[in-house]
Amino acid sequence: MCLAIPSKVIEIDHEMNSITVDTMGAARSASLDLLPEPVEIGDYVILHVGFAIRKVDEKSAIEVIDYYNEILADEQEE
């Protein structure tokens, strides 16, 4: 259900409590009404039907990928 995609914050409108986000070249405004944490320009948020619902957690996002990339790199060396 619930298609949601990571998008990058490129503009913040405090008055409207909204942001403009970019998803690979497609820009759309998104509401901050439901976002629990503060955002800055350059942050990545998860977007669902026009609302930012969560900031993407940087550490966890990188962890999984790094883990497997390291294994893959080790194997290549062997």
């Binding site: 990571p6 990058k8 998803t23 690979m24 800055e40 320009i41 350059g42 942050d43 990545y44 993407v56 940087e58 996002a61 990188i62 990928i65 497997y68 990339n69 294994i71 893959l72």
Partner: peptide
């Protein structure tokens, strides 16, 4: 300005769809 985010579309979309990683998990 803010701290530099290490996130990128190439990580969040491309790496999370990377065929080598998928095969490795398999």
């Amino acid at each position: 300005m803010n701290k530099k985010s290490k996130l990128s579309f190439s990580l969040l979309l491309d790496d999370y769809r990377d065929s080598h990683i998928i095969k490795k998990i398999a």
